[in-house]
Amino acid sequence: MSEQSKKPNDKSRRDFLQNIGMAGVGTLLGGAAVWAGFNYDSKKTAKQRIKVLTAENKLVEIEKDAILDIEKSPAQQLTYLQQRGRDGLEGKRFVMVIDLSKCQNARKCMQACQEAHHLRPEQHHINVLKMQETATTQPYYMPKPCQHCDNPPCTAVCPVDATFKRQDGIVLIDNERCIGCRFCMAACPYSARLFHWQEPLFSEQDKDLVYDVEQNVPQRRGTISKCLFSADKLREGKQPSCVSACPNGVYYFGDENEDVVTNGTTKESFRFRKLLADNGGYTLMPELGTKPRVYYLPPKGKTSPFQEKDKEEAAEHFHG
């Protein structure tokens, strides 16, 4: 009797131990994930720097990784460009200031942008909108690039880290990783993103190019594209395409850490915070808490009138 009654006990003890074992494995797996999260280490290895002679006979010092030698396979080049694109520029915090009082809807920014990023005419990284808040207030033109938010709702929802924010504040998209779920488009309150529903404009002629995250070229069908602040140009010390294409001095671009922004048209520089303070600078929809890196100066004292033909379209939005 005692023998028999003991047996199930043994069995259940064995089972119990096995359960513990399996639970252990589960805990270990989960624990590993937690540990990886906790143990994130921001140590950065110092990058090796070397001196090279440029085509203009200038001796410049660059990071050793930056040499894209011909022998590197396209896959290696891609990995390098992806890594570079994710790292961003150290010590920078890029900001854009858009002076609405100067915008006359010349659309040179849109054009330059579409050329730089190989987009179709209906695809906009930057879009000049005709705005009007209420029936009694004045309509105005508002260029709207990606706001490169410091609390970006788009990157929050990305399931695969295809869109990400870099240390210099720029929000980029890696279209080699994007799965095309379009959650970021739904999450963006500024409608700043576009999706390649069909083959991109230059997909045939761009097909041998190595993909550069910082330019998002070649564009790719079934993935997202968006304003990049021309990250490839910023690396060279140049301003974004839209900024330098503007004929009317609408854009200022600079580094918040330097507290200076430079006008893309006149190349005149101003103290960033003072420019905002003196002109009543603001951000779009601050109530959403997205903390944009694009600032607007109000359309006060516009130098040119809002065009008659655009009035109807501007009014559409507030009439509802």
Binding site: A156, V157, C158, P159, V160, D161, A162, R177, C178, I179, G180, C181, R182, F183, F195, H196, R221, G222, T223
Partner: peptide, 26 residues
């Protein structure tokens, strides 16, 4: 159904390789 909505269904594995647990999709 959700895979049929994706622009790159062949990259589905990215959700497991590069998954971000902050995303409601994950």
């Amino acid at each position: 159904v959700i895979i049929m909505d994706m622009g790159h269904p062949e990259r589905l594995l990215n959700v497991f390789i590069h998954g971000r647990i902050q995303s409601p999709i994950v």
